[in-house]
């Protein structure tokens, strides 16, 4: 790797600004997992098929394995670590826990973030809208039924927490 293939980017991750020296071929997934130690973002396929590496880029779910670090300079990323922790679960995570919306848990961060992107835009989605929003995430354990129930429950929890006018 020659010195000329490096670049410096600024990147906001979970509301924290980073200045990073990156190499041209590096993906956002590599930056998150290997430079910033944010290992909640999972690698499953490296080819935009499984959704395990889903993160929010300026609020929009993207596959971190398909974004070059150079493409995300100056932008804001939210990873699963940007939601709650085990002592303070986000209502969306709580809904997944209450509804058993996972089996092995490897696809789970990606599903939670795809669901977050949906609910941030559309607080009262139909089941079809939920299914469409989650269609970029695979769960090989086949927990889809519980995952969809979890998102419905999360919408309910969020509407109770913040009643709309």
């Amino acid at each position: 790797m020659t010195a000329s293939s490096k670049a410096t980017i600024t990147l906001t991750v979970n509301h924290q600004a980073h200045r990073l020296e990156v190499e041209h071929p590096w993906t956002l997934l590599h930056v998150l997992r290997d430079l910033l130690d944010l290992t909640g973002t999972k690698r499953g396929c490296d080819r935009a098929e499984c959704g395990a590496c889903t993160v929010l880029l300026d609020g929009v779910p993207v596959y971190a394995c398909q974004m070059l670090a150079l493409q995300v300079g100056g932008r804001a990323v939210v990873t699963i670590e940007g939601l709650g922790d085990v002592q303070h679960l986000d209502p969306l995570q709580q809904a997944f826990l209450d509804n058993d919306g996972a089996q092995c848990g490897y696809c789970t961060p990606g599903f939670v973030l795809s669901a977050k992107a949906l609910l941030d835009q559309n607080p009262d989605p139909t089941e079809l809208e939920i299914r469409r929003a989650l269609s970029g995430n695979l769960c090989r354990c086949n927990a889809y039924g519980r995952i969809i129930e979890s998102v419905k429950a999360a919408a309910q929890l969020l509407s109770e927490a913040q009643p709309r006018p």
């Binding site: 130690d37 973002t41 699963i80 995570q93 997944f96 826990l97």
Partner: peptide, 21 residues
């Protein structure tokens, strides 16, 4: 009973083998 070890999977705190350095 709440699912054992599900909370840390939901928050990204769960360490899978690939996450260990």
């Amino acid at each position: 009973a709440p699912r054992l070890r599900l909370p840390e999977a939901l928050t990204g705190e769960a360490k899978f083998v690939a996450d260990i350095k």
